[in-house]
Each structure stands twice: as C-alpha cells, then as structure tokens.
Simulated scan of single mutants.
Amino acid sequence: MQIDLSGKTALVTASTAGIGLAIAKGLAATGAEVVLNGRHQDSLQAALEAVRAAVPGAKVRGVAADVGDAAGCAALVAAVPAVDILVNNAGIYGPKDFFALEDADWSRYFELNVMSGVRLARAYVPGMEARDWGRVVFISSESGLNIPEDMIHYGFSKTAQLAISRGLAKRLRGTGVTVNAVLPGPTLSEGVAAMLQEAAASQGVSVEQAAAAFVKAKRPSSILQRAATVEEVANMVVYACSLQASATTGAALRVDGGVVDTIA
C-alpha cells in the first residue's frame, strides 16, 4: 500500500517526542506538510530537526503553543488557520490514588486530554467539511476501555475521547471527513523508557526487557507480551489519515497488543 498525502496539511499536537513525534515523521514520509506542536521552542526546534533528518525534504514547520487551555488552542489556530488532518495527541498521564485526587487534578486532565481535542476539532473540522475531505484522529488508550485502578482520572479522560470521536463521526455522516480514535497499549516512548531506566539498571537488563516485564506484570492479558514501539502506533495513525482509510470512521482502532480481552 502506497500512502500519498501530498498536498495535505497535517497538525499533530504534542509532537516533540514519543508517539506524537513518530506520527509526525510518518505523515511527513507520505508527502504531507506537517505542523509540529509543543509548549517550548527549544524542544520544538529539536523535533523539527529530527523529522528533517528522518525524512529528507520533509515539509515541516512548528508552532509553540500550550493546548492545555483555551488561550493556547486559540494561539495555535491563529498560527495555523486550516488543516486537512488533525491528530489530537496531546495528553498527560500518571498514577495517583482516587482518594488523593483533588478537583484541580480532574480539571487538569479534562482540559488537556479532552478539551484540547474538542477545541481544535471545533476550529478545524468545519473547514474540512466545506472541502469535503478531512481526517481527525484522537489518540485515546486501552485505558479508556480497561480503566486502571491507579489512574482512574486518566482512564476517564480516554473514555471521553472515545465518546467524542464516535459522536463527531456521526455528526459528520455522509461527508468526506472521517473521525477515529487510536488506542495504544503500553508503548515504549521516551517517557516510559525514562521511568523504567532505574529498574532496568538495577536488574541488569535492557530497557526493552524491563518494559516487557512491566507489561507481563501490569497488563497480564497482553498477547504481544511486550511494549509496542512508537513507530508501531504511528503506523496505525498514518493509515487512519490516509486516502485509503476512507471507509474507516467512528472506529476505535486498537494498537494495544491484545491487552483488552475482547474479540469486538
């Protein structure tokens, strides 16, 4: 399958590292013009250089904006008034006991993980509909289906993304705009690798081996029995953004290694 997105403009939020950066590289490789986004200019510049190194001749630019609040989303839209592809990747995660969570914690997760995608879709999708072509992808998580007891706040936000993506797809029925959610499982991003580095060193194993042990211990239903790479997740996102995925909409596309124990 040859995915060609030449002439399309794609925006990937929180794309200076991890899954977001891998998605940006994957979309750049299809010929799309890719807009990277991050909060800080220095990390954004490093990400732009990484994409250009991975994809010679890539059409890529960056916008520094914090999409965790309305003002940051508005600044991003002002800098990039229209896109053909929107990948809502921005999000935060972290374990915390339900009874230790305060209102501010819930609000922070809701604003960044949920409302950033809502605000950007509200800004960009009408233009896609007017052009009768567009792709919107929400990066959800298997935690949206398999709520972790130590990250209920995170799971809630990822379930919300599933509801929004499905509902928005219905709202756009009969148009050339598709809306989908991609659900990664345990993924060996830079953040996860940093979290596992100390454990790997103390056990005398590689980070990849430590990640596999984590998956087996914390996600025993995993069929893959290892963490996915960021590129493996990005591959699914690039497909969902492609012209070939024109009949895929309203879907929850799992890249969870089989963690969610269901055939549906």
Rank of each mutant, 00 (worst) to 15 (best):
Q2K: 15
S6F: 04
K8S: 09
T9A: 10
T13P: 02
T13Y: 05
A14H: 01
A17C: 11
G18T: 08
I23L: 09
L27G: 01
A28V: 00
A29N: 05
T30F: 03
E33N: 12
E33S: 11
V35A: 02
R39S: 10
L48W: 07
A54C: 06
A54T: 09
A54Q: 01
P56Y: 06
G57N: 07
A58I: 08
V67Q: 05
C73K: 01
C73G: 05
A74I: 01
P81A: 13
A82V: 10
D84I: 05
L86A: 12
L86D: 09
L86M: 07
V87T: 08
G91N: 09
K96R: 11
D97Q: 14
F98R: 10
F99I: 13
F99M: 12
A100C: 12
L101G: 04
L101A: 13
L101N: 11
E102G: 13
A104P: 02
E111L: 03
L112Y: 00
L112M: 05
N113D: 08
V114A: 00
R122V: 02
R122Y: 08
A123K: 03
Y124G: 03
V125L: 07
P126D: 08
G127R: 09
A130M: 10
A130I: 08
W133R: 05
V137E: 06
F138A: 08
S140C: 07
E142T: 02
G144H: 04
L145D: 09
N146G: 07
P148C: 12
P148D: 08
E149T: 14
D150S: 14
M151K: 09
S157Y: 03
Q161G: 11
S165W: 01
L168A: 06
G174S: 10
T175A: 07
A181L: 05
V182Q: 05
L183D: 05
L183N: 12
L183V: 07
L188F: 13
L188D: 11
A194I: 05
A194T: 09
A199G: 14
A201S: 12
Q203T: 03
V215I: 11
A217G: 06
K218E: 15
K218C: 11
R219M: 15
R219C: 15
I223S: 11
Q225G: 14
A228T: 13
Y239W: 14
C241E: 03
S242V: 02
L243Y: 08
L243I: 00
Q244Y: 14
A245T: 04
A247L: 13
A247C: 14
T248M: 14
T249Y: 06
T249A: 11
G250D: 11
A252S: 15
R254P: 08
V255W: 02
V255E: 00
D261S: 15
